[in-house]
Design a protein around this nucleic acid. Structure first.
Length: 674
DNA sequence: GTCGCAAGGCTTTTT
DNA sequence: GCCTTGCGAC
């Protein structure tokens, strides 16, 4: 298919800064992939001089595949296509000396971060969960805004601010001494480094001669600074974004960065992509009308010349079990009548836990499905265990990981031993691992306790030596010598669960093997790198069977951004779910607007049909609630909706009347503004 | 030091 | 409703 005029000019404009305002389904990925090809084939760039960044692993993977398909793997080799965080990790890895970091640092995921903060702030916050959450968010915001603990402390006004800033400082000191970085550091450190160090900045400007950024509306302050530093005054870059699809403001994304670009680069070329190639006219119209309820940074009008299409179905179910059954039943009969593939269907939801029931029903009906995103895999105890082993193996100072594995499987090293070891290590300013070798003469431990501890750490020490030369081999040794499979069988509630766990561990091992080996597009990694990539959930997957597999796609709406499906089902179109209860409670219009954008993103994933589902009853934290249908349903053009009453015995006339009465109620309850 | 049970309390979304 | 945490028994 030929590019349209707007797309073509977005591809061919390479001499300066370029902002592409790309509405949903307007072919932005095509623009990016074609532009990369154009840069290489026409403008004489080498692949390794071009970097393209996105926000999610899924999007990065998708882009890699599309680019490889356009250019061929040979020409695409060396291209840097990754998430912001992986790019940051890469910069830190190469510049670790300038940053005064050891090369073997490990990464904290948000759970590690929370656990450490909880421990560190216990004297100040008294384990108050709300305060702890606020602190976590605050630290993240400080890091996003490039504010050091020192500065935070200086500018703290209230008593609470001072305590938070103090905790921030403690946290920073502690993470540095553990030789770990958190996710925000991966952006913050490179940004600070490039701002402060001219030599390093020039090195990266030399290396990355052209930068492309997808989902630009999701950048936060430090990410924007990082972009500015990399592109420098040459300003050879293209950013692609859509303020209507900004759904990450809760983690610091500033859609205003789109407007800032005009200020910072006065010669910015702004190109609008307004033709939608994805959805039926009806779906597009519904999406446009919904999003028109939000204020806009940039004006754009999406149009398409695809046929009208079917009405948008609205299912009302009695409760959430019913909802899952209804949606699956709809899907099965649709597939049967239309003779389609499972992989053309997507079931989207607001929060991860909503997948549970759907999974159950899909399983009962033996329908193949794939859940993407979600933390399910890495949240599993067996995966966390092995990850902790790998982290200690590469970074012996990672006490958090050390504590997780020191007694898993059981080694008779209990809380008393660890308490004493912890105190001793603290007094010596040492890691738990290293302190274990020096604690003997102090007599703090009984000989039995010391024996158990040292047997473990000596073994670990040998293993990490082994890991330096033969990383994959050493991981195999690790798994066999702790007899992990048997441990899993002993501790699992059932044979089946144990088999599942063993499979998960094997999966991790397989991925690890692939990452250490590399492939046509990726260089082989060190064990440290591979472990850090895992923490970022950014692993090399042998794509073939994954891609071809005919499976129904399950994911959150957040995870679905940038993807498209023929037939889309959205669950839980209810007040309290979408919009989420928190955004209703706080009574801030911006929060509802973000929820509306989320609904917009969900709706615009659909190419051919869209089905929206809500329940009349739902169990929430143990009690039964009766949620109202989402206000967003009332905002959609009602002529394009096919409201189906929950009772099949209703005549169409009754159904219509009920629907209309319901709507009147909704409209009275949620009057449109303006 | 380990295991099992009961009570309490809640992550929305991702790297 | 489910998962984590705390406590008591062995």
């Amino acid at each position: 298919m030929k590019l349209n005029d707007a797309q073509q000019s977005a591809v061919e404009f390479v001499t300066g800064p370029c902002l592409v305002l790309a509405g949903a389904g307007s072919g932005k990925t095509r623009v990016i992939t074609n532009k990369i090809a154009h840069l290489i084939r026409v403008c004489g760039y080498e692949a390794r001089q071009i970097a393209a960044v996105t926000f999610t692993n899924k999007a990065a993977r998708e882009m890699k595949e599309r680019v490889a398909a356009t250019l061929g793997k040979k020409e695409a080799r060396g291209l840097l296509i990754s998430t912001f965080h992986t790019l940051g990790l890469e910069i830190i890895k190469r510049e670790h000396k300038v940053l005064e970091l050891k090369s073997n640092f490990s990464l904290f995921d948000d759970q590690d971060q929370l656990a450490l903060l909880k421990e560190l702030t216990e004297p100040f916050l008294k384990e108050d969960k709300t305060l702890l959450m606020q602190l976590t968010n605050r630290i993240s915001r400080w890091k996003n805004d490039i504010i050091s603990p020192k500065l935070a402390l200086e500018s703290a006004l209230s008593q609470e601010d001072k305590i938070f800033a103090h905790c921030y400082q403690l946290y920073e000191t502690q993470t540095r001494s553990l030789n770990v970085l958190d996710f925000d550091d991966l952006i913050l450190l490179p940004t600070k480094l490039l701002i402060e160090n001219q030599e390093v900045r020039e090195r990266w400007q030399q290396k990355i001669k052209y930068l492309l950024v997808d989902e630009y509306q999701d950048t936060n302050t430090s990410q924007y600074q990082l972009i500015k530093m990399i592109v420098g005054t040459r300003a050879r870059f293209t950013v692609v974004g859509d303020d209507d699809q900004s759904i990450y403001s809760w983690r610091g994304a500033q859609p205003q960065n789109m407007a800032l670009l005009k200020r910072d680069f006065p010669n910015l070329n702004v190109i609008k992509l307004e033709q939608n190639y994805r959805s039926t006219a009806r779906i597009l119209k519904a999406a446009n009308i919904l999003i028109a309820n939000n204020p806009h940074l940039f004006d754009k009008k999406l149009f398409c010349d695809i046929e009208q299409g079917e009405q948008i179905k609205v299912l009302a179910s009695k409760n959430e079990e019913n909802e899952a059954e209804r949606v699956v039943a709809e899907l099965i009969s649709h597939r049967f009548l239309q003779n389609t593939d499972y992989k053309q269907y997507a079931i989207l939801y607001r929060s991860n836990h909503q997948s549970r029931l759907i999974e159950k029903v899909l399983m009962q009906n033996r329908i193949p499905y794939k859940i993407s995103g979600g933390t399910s895999f890495f949240a599993r105890a067996e995966i966390k265990d092995i990850m902790a082993y790998l982290r200690v193996l590469t970074n012996s100072e990672d006490d958090t990981a050390f504590l997780r594995i020191v007694n898993t499987p059981r080694r008779e090293i209990g809380p008393t031993t660890l308490q004493k070891l912890g105190e001793f290590a603290k007094s010596q300013q040492k890691s738990l691992f290293s302190a274990s070798f020096d604690i003997g003469p102090t007599g703090l431990l009984t000989s039995r306790q010391l024996g158990a501890l040292q047997q473990f750490t000596i073994w670990l020490d040998k293993l990490s030596e082994h890991a330096k030369n033969e990383p994959l081999e050493s991981v195999k040794t690790l798994l066999t010598s702790i007899n992990y499979d048997s441990w899993l069988f002993e501790t699992s509630p059932s044979q089946k669960a144990a088999e599942m766990r063993v499979r998960n561990v094997n999966q991790l091992y397989e991925w690890l093997g692939e990452m250490l080996k590399g492939d046509e597009l990726e260089e082989p990694m060190t064990l440290t790198q591979a472990v850090n990539r895992f923490t970022l959930r950014d692993m090399l997957e042998r794509g073939e069977d994954e891609q071809d597999a005919d499976q129904v796609q399950l994911m959150t709406i957040h995870a679905s951004k940038g993807l498209e499906f023929d037939f889309v089902y959205i669950l839980g179109m209810e007040e309290g779910i979408m919009p989420h209860q928190n955004s209703i409670d706080d009574n801030q219009p911006e929060l509802i607007e973000e929820e509306r954008r989320l609904a917009y993103v969900g709706i615009t994933r659909a190419k051919k049909t869209l089905t929206l589902s809500h329940c009349l009853e739902r169990r929430s934290m143990g009690e039964v609630i009766k949620p109202e249908p989402s206000r967003f349903l009332a905002e959609l053009p009602q002529d394009d909706l096919d409201w189906e009453s929950k009772k099949a015995k209703d005549t169409p006339q009754q159904r219509m009347e009920k629907g209309q009465a319901h709507l009147a109620m909704l409209k009275a309850k949620f009057p449109k503004k303006g």
